[in-house]
Write a protein that binds this DNA or RNA. Structure first.
Lengths: 202, 202
DNA sequence: CCTTATATAGAACGCTTGTTCAATCTAATA
DNA sequence: TATTAGATTGAACAAGCGTTCTATATAAGG
């Protein structure tokens, strides 16, 4: 049933580029090379198609993240930066090599930005996030869990900005990017920020 | 001409809640207590109405931010956290007291997230952002300007998450927020993150 | 082979959308 | 007061939308 995958690929691209309301089933149909009614047939409804598109890669992403966390723990007590790296790097690596994962990143940004999709976040992303927040909380025992959760949300928003707002950086920097240590910079930003927000420093 | 303000207020609310594509002129008309054609009459087109709504508060925001920066500089060499505070606090203070500014914050988040509105960012937000990036660069002389701009974009995305993603924090924290030092936490997060991303620490 | 379920096509439906247009009301100006 | 420009109404338009329905093609199971 390769058609279903083709339709989900097209839906992913169109949803990512235009958001839920801006996307049309007709654009997806054209991109997938099928008729509109077939998109609807495989998706049940536009809203369910949206959730299916998010769900498709969510499981693989969660598995990769938790595996990276286990690997970090196997190598000794991970510091907050190592924990965040386990959360960020699998996603960033996929997005770097596969344009479909780049589109998926924009899709995730839409889900994360809109309270209307809170149930999708809750179903597909929050369980993994809880694991990482708990792990971070264990390394930051002086911080209330709510502060860690808040810092984690900031960090995720920075990661999504990293994946989707290169245009803004380019508009503000006026020079072209020099090298590939961007991910390290992002990680330092979030890890140091998280530690500062969670406790110590005043 | 109070009608125009009423229409812009309604447009602000509806655009903020639903995004550009999800918003309808009819919702705005109903909220403003006028007919649809009048909304169109004052806005010229949906897209121009969107830009007008963003533009309306942009000037006041820029003035308040630059004034705060001047005040910080008058009190002595401001560190990066003081510079970021001058950028964040005027907006956060307005959003805390005025629900229309809260709606405007969600509107700004939409503009910042979508490359389609790059020209609006460029016209209404980037000039002020450039001033602050230059000021930060002066205090972080070892960092390439592109790294500072990148960190600044991360910081802004965290600030917008602070303003628009309380629902996500609540879903992840499982406890209610304790006190009002949230803004301090956000500032520590961004300032420390910026310094870490820009230079020092490895 | 026949039956049945699913995949696909094609056309149409009802609805909402942004936009237009002519008509009326309001208010300022000369 | 007469004129004129703008504000407001009300109705309509054409286009695009998600969805539905019927009919045909395809493939799987008994």
């Amino acid at each position: 049933m390769a058609t279903r995958e083709k339709i989900l690929d097209a839906a992913e691209t169109v949803f990512a580029a235009n958001g839920f309301d801006g996307a049309t089933l007709r654009d997806m149909a054209e991109l997938a090379g099928v008729r509109v009614s077939l998109v609807h047939h495989h998706g049940e409804s536009k809203e369910q198609l949206f959730e299916q598109t998010v769900a498709r890669r969510a499981k693989a992403l969660a598995v990769a993240r938790l595996a990276a966390l286990e690997a970090a723990k196997a190598a000794g007590e991970p510091d907050p930066e190592a924990i965040l790296a386990a959360f960020f790097r699998p996603f960033l690596a996929l997005a770097e090599t596969d344009p479909r994962w780049r589109a998926y990143a924009r899709l995730v940004a839409h889900v994360s930005a809109d309270p209307r999709w809170a149930h999708i976040s809750a179903a597909h992303f929050d369980p993994t996030a809880q694991v990482f927040i708990a792990e971070l909380s264990a390394r930051l025992p002086q911080a209330p869990r709510e502060a860690v959760a808040r810092g984690f949300v900031y960090a995720v928003s920075a990661m999504l900005a990293h994946l989707t707002s290169q245009w803004r950086v380019r508009a503000l920097a006026a020079e072209s990017a020099p090298a590939g240590d961007d991910v390290d910079r992002l990680l330092h930003f979030c890890a140091c920020g998280l530690c500062a927000a969670a406790g110590g420093r005043g």
